[in-house]
Design a protein around this nucleic acid. Structure first.
Lengths: 206, 206
DNA sequence: GTCTATAGCTAGATAGAC
DNA sequence: GTCTATCTAGCTATAGAC
């Protein structure tokens, strides 16, 4: 994928970019601030990557991959559990500071995507893949009879958009009360509209 | 509100900031680029505002006010119509280039809010006011018997978060197909979960 | 491969004429 | 009030020692 940057170097770089983004945001990111988040010098970063933007793209590649893996790693054969946990993961956890920083940074890059093709391409592909993943879960549930006969793609898109919006208000603005209420409505939606009659939500979400 | 910047000057400035943000995004915004979007010189902007960030805040004040007014201006006494139209407005129109630019810019400022108190304060207040506005519509509908007895605040928050997330994917990434599907699911949600039995959505949304 | 030092530029902001 | 000209700081990126 990325042209032969050694794994240790990339890990160091991605970590420093991640911390610098969490501390200063993309709009105020400088290569000095990135270097300040590691033991390495500024030149170290320019040896491995050509430009500052390449550093950010390396972070973005890492972040999208990480998020996709977290979804894929949901460990259950039951479509009901998988769908609830997936939505839970997508909304995110405000208390997890690292996660919050990563999510806010991804959002800042997303909102800058109209002006940066690399951001646009990676984030469109990522969003698309999440929708596909959710749609696959929905399809499974329909086949198994646990879900109603909803439109998998449309339902997946709808769920992701709700989770995305919530991430913004909760992670970026700290409106945790809104987060709680939306979570409740979201799980209620799954229960009343996606789950088939007589199917219950997982215990943790009831 | 803002300390005595003449209305004509402010209009000129807000317009230039708006166009510069639409063209370059917040992360790449410079005062030179702002000035390039007007007939005025760079010094003109610094005569009326002390710092570059004050210019952006002036834009943000204008943008939040504009969005709030658009919601408040929905011209109907019928809670059903008002709720559907409000959601429609909140999701926004991808085809409207100005609206798209404004929405994407607001999103970029939102995602930078953890690092800028002025952004944080204005956007939290704005989001809160939209939730209040939506909740008021929901309460009205419940009183009139057009809506079920849902939780107005939670429902309002839930609807806004879905609209916000959709704005991101549609306006910033151009995923218009996702926008269509989410709109459909969103209006379906309103119809099946918020509207009382036997109440129909407005003709335009059926 | 990684460092220190610095080039070269552009940013935000100001001075002073009008 | 608005302009042109310009200052200074801080940025991205590179050169050259090790």
């Amino acid at each position: 994928m990325s042209d032969a940057v050694p794994d240790v170097a990339r890990a160091e770089i991605v970590g420093a970019v991640r911390r610098a983004l969490a501390k200063h945001g993309y709009a105020r990111l400088t290569t000095k601030k990135v270097a300040a988040e590691s033991e390495k010098s500024e030149a170290f970063f320019f040896y491995h990557y050509d430009t500052k933007d390449d550093l950010v793209v390396a972070f973005l590649d890492w972040a999208t991959e990480r998020s996709a893996e977290r979804l894929a790693a949901i460990d259950s054969d039951d479509p009901v559990t998988r769908l609830f946990v997936a939505c839970d993961v997508l909304v995110g956890d405000y208390e997890d500071e690292d996660d919050r920083g990563i999510n806010v940074a991804m959002m800042e890059l997303l909102s800058h995507a109209p002006h940066d093709e690399a951001f646009h391409d990676r984030l469109s592909a990522y969003k698309r893949s999440v929708i596909d993943e959710l749609a696959a879960i929905v399809s499974l549930g329909i086949e198994s009879g646990a879900f109603r006969d909803v439109d998998p793609e449309a339902t997946a898109a709808y769920l992701l958009m709700t989770a995305d919006g919530t991430t913004g208000a909760v992670m970026a603005l700290g409106m945790t009360d809104v987060g709680e209420k939306v979570r409740e409505r979201l799980f209620d939606y799954l229960t009343s509209t996606v789950l088939a009659d007589g199917v219950s939500p997982p215990a943790a979400f009831a």
